[in-house]
């Protein structure tokens, strides 16, 4: 079976027949309607709509970049660019035997710090829980932050990371991507500017085919100048 793609708006009929709805699709009798604006994809697995806008909804195992906005005796509250604030428990940072009497949370992170963290638990009934145990996770010491819509992150990464590799090699920068739409760029100043430009291009033209090529052109053009 072929995979066809089609631009859809909410409420638009995608297809009629016997399929399995996967994402952003509702079924009324035998008809499938899109619930968001995006690209409808009919594949072997079923029907999905790849959205082009919308808030970030955390998923377990997502790597996100967040900002510490508050702290209590036992945890930090982190803004992860979503409709929910995330919690980073002090136990997961200081260890099991953490006691608020002995250690102050401010020793590790203070308000305004940026962290790279992993979502370890989230469901509809409670706020997301973060952890910084893992390679490269923790406080972000330096770099430039770029925010884009989280729906466009898969496009920025590209197939098997092709897009991100293209940008990284052309700009001599390292890009750290948060699934919540926040990107950290580390590298030389010129590279950061160029990478930001490329990211903005991906964001505005995420729906177009041959995007990698366009970005390659952009990057090589500015190299010549």
């Amino acid at each position: 079976m072929t995979i066809s793609r089609k631009y859809v708006t909410p409420g638009e009929l995608i297809v009629e027949g016997d399929y399995k709805p996967i994402n952003n699709v509702i079924r009324v009798d035998d008809k499938f309607y899109a619930t968001k604006i995006g690209l409808a994809e009919i594949g072997r697995g079923g029907i999905r709509v790849i959205p082009l806008s919308g808030p970030y909804i955390p998923r377990v195992d997502d790597l996100v970049i967040g900002k510490i906005v508050d702290y209590s005796a036992f945890s930090w509250e982190v803004d992860i660019n979503s409709c929910f604030f995330a919690y980073l428990p002090a136990q997961s940072v200081f260890g099991r035997d953490f006691s608020p009497d002995r250690e102050s949370l401010l020793k590790k992170f203070s308000i305004g710090d940026l962290i790279y963290a992993k979502v370890v638990a989230y469901d509809r009934t409670r706020d997301p829980l973060l952890s910084i145990s893992g390679p490269n996770l923790g406080r972000i010491p330096k770099g430039e932050i770029v925010k884009i819509n989280s729906a466009k992150i898969p496009r920025l990464i590209g197939k098997k990371g092709s897009m991100i590799k293209t940008i990284e090699s052309a700009t001599h920068c390292k890009l750290i991507i948060g699934q919540n739409g926040i990107i950290l760029i580390i590298g030389p100043h010129d590279g950061i500017l160029l990478a930001t430009q490329a990211i903005r291009m991906v964001e505005s033209e995420a729906h177009l085919a041959s995007l990698t090529k366009k970005v390659q052109n952009l990057l090589s053009e500015s190299k010549e100048v």
Partner: peptide, 11 residues
């Protein structure tokens, strides 16, 4: 609302 990406059954 559609621009904000709020899921809806129909416009």
């Amino acid at each position: 609302l559609a621009d904000a990406g709020i899921p809806m059954r129909d416009m």
